[in-house]
Amino acid sequence: MKLLKSATLAAAMFALALGAATAQDATKVRIGTEGAYPPFNFLDSAGQLQGFDVEIAKALCDEMKVECEFVTQDWDGIIPALLAGKFDAIIASMSINEERKKSVDFTGKYYNTPPAVAVPKDSTVAGVSPEDLKGLNVGAQGSTTHSTWAEKVLTDSTVKLYPTADEYKLDLENGRLDAVVDDVVVLSDWIKSDAGKCCKIVGTITPVMEIHGEGAGIALRKEDTELKEKFNAAIQAIRANGKYEEINKKYFDFDVYGG
């Protein structure tokens, strides 16, 4: 009897917790981000989310007058987690491309920077063309536009896929990789830091529209059209009122919004 009672209690509490978690509060938006992609989104030494994406997200939430809550999620599973309702929007430097548009909807871009290739300082690699990288070990983070580019374009190189950017950085530093591909801002931010002094940027890649898309946008579930419009309006608003520029200046000495 006692067992039955506590089981009922547990079930009731579970249902309550579930109800609380799924209750749609119109003024609360849960934002998914990776937290491992400096300088766009990362965890600082205190375990707090920081970065350009995070500050843009906060500015957008202020603009929309909603309360935002951040959820960190591995990159691999970030779209499935959005679709499963773990959060309502992805603000994690996600490139807007055709492949992803099949499953999610995007706002307009909130920044656009080109991809680049980094190599060790003493490397003889002279450019970023498939010929320059022929026969070499090239690293990229898996499930990214950069990995798609590497697999599609660098057909004569060995492409290695890593779970996060941290790991390919380690392998470029220790010489297992001859080159890595990622966003130019991510690579240059790393190279400027102590950890990245092993390496240099050899050049940027001309984005391929089908692979790289028009830039980074906010990903949403397809049915959330209202939220998408609110985000789009908020992006326009912070572009117009100088908030975007303020955040841009804090992180970069050039305009990341792109042409």
Partner: peptide, 10 residues
């Protein structure tokens, strides 16, 4: 996981 990250199909 690679196939899942491309297809989002469980």
């Amino acid at each position: 996981r690679y196939a899942y990250s491309k297809t989002y199909d469980f």
